Amino acid sequence: MDRMLDPDPASMDTEAMYNQLLLDAASREGFPMSPDAAKDNVLQVVPKPGFCLKTKDAEGKKIFINVCHADNVPAPKDMTDNELLKLLDSEDPFGFRIPMSLGEPHAELDKSGNGCTAFDVVVNPGFLEKMKTSEVFRAFFLSVTLEGIEDKYNQTLSRDWILLKNKRFVGTLPEQRIRSTSKPLIMEMDNSAPALPKTPKFDAEDLKARGQTPEYRIVQDPAEGHPEYLVAEINLPKVKTVNSVTLDIGEDRILLETRSNVYYLDIYLPFYLLQDECGAQFNRKTRILTITMPVQPS
């Protein structure tokens, strides 16, 4: 089955990309939902102000990020500063994930009456308090948030940001639609999974003609037992646009080819997929293709 790739991360559901960085939430209290929201299994909540960050885009225009909180957003794993620093130095720097909800940009006026843009990002209130006392967690969160905005809205933001001392938010805080159920975090595929069938072998000339095998990894969710999802991350540093990539997702197979035979990947999976529900997106900044693949129940 040929799968269309989305060339623009801004048009994708943010769950699919970050991993980091998945923008999910879980319901803890009953909030009124519109019929459309109930159909999509989401809650409508008004964020509460926390603190505000000021930065600039590539054109020098002011950008404000309102860091807010809501009880509906789950807290991340409890961790000390030293544990986070050790994790960031490890081979799995994305092992710590922050549940958050990133709203749409909205036009506002700064204190001088000039136009600016504001983004609202909502986190758990307990985690907001942790950021107020921990520079390590605050810096990590703001780095993740800036990268998330850049990828989702195709912007470049300055890292010379300033925390506003006397202003908790800029403009208004519109309602946000937050998912009332969240998917488990993606974890590494465990070693107890069935062995992968061997990829067909080709001689050196065949491999050269087909292209270089890219670096990739496959993870499963949940980490143990039969997974609900498989996620493949394929590193394609020589690819500038997805228009040059052809992706075929089979019942238990991923076949990727590129124009001019730059890359070629043909791998079999140890589980059967729900092909029609599979999706893929290409991050033009990191040059990583992420494929999300729901797995057929056992």
Results as ranks from 00 to 15, higher is better:
L236Y: 04
A209R: 14
K130N: 12
K240Y: 07
T80M: 07
N235W: 06
K165F: 12
C116R: 01
E277A: 07
S143T: 10
C116L: 05
L157T: 03
N66D: 03
D36S: 05
A10E: 05
K54P: 00
G113A: 04
I98C: 04
I234W: 02
D120N: 12
E224K: 09
K167W: 05
T292M: 04
N261R: 07
L196Y: 11
D92G: 05
T145W: 02
V295T: 10
M293N: 08
M79F: 12
R253S: 06
V45K: 00
K39R: 15
E233G: 03
F271S: 01
P294K: 02
T117P: 12
D120Q: 07
E147K: 05
F202V: 06
P200M: 05
V67R: 04
G279W: 10
F119S: 01
L164H: 11
V144K: 05
E91C: 05
A75Q: 14
L207Y: 06
M100D: 06
Q281W: 10
N243H: 12
D2T: 09
K130S: 07
I267S: 04
D36I: 10
L256Y: 09
R177M: 05
G115L: 09
V239S: 08
G211N: 03
M189P: 00
E175F: 02
E228V: 03
K285C: 08
V123W: 12
P9D: 01
L256N: 00
D89S: 14
D248N: 12
R217I: 05
P7R: 09
I186D: 01
M4R: 14
E205L: 15
E175Q: 12
M189N: 11
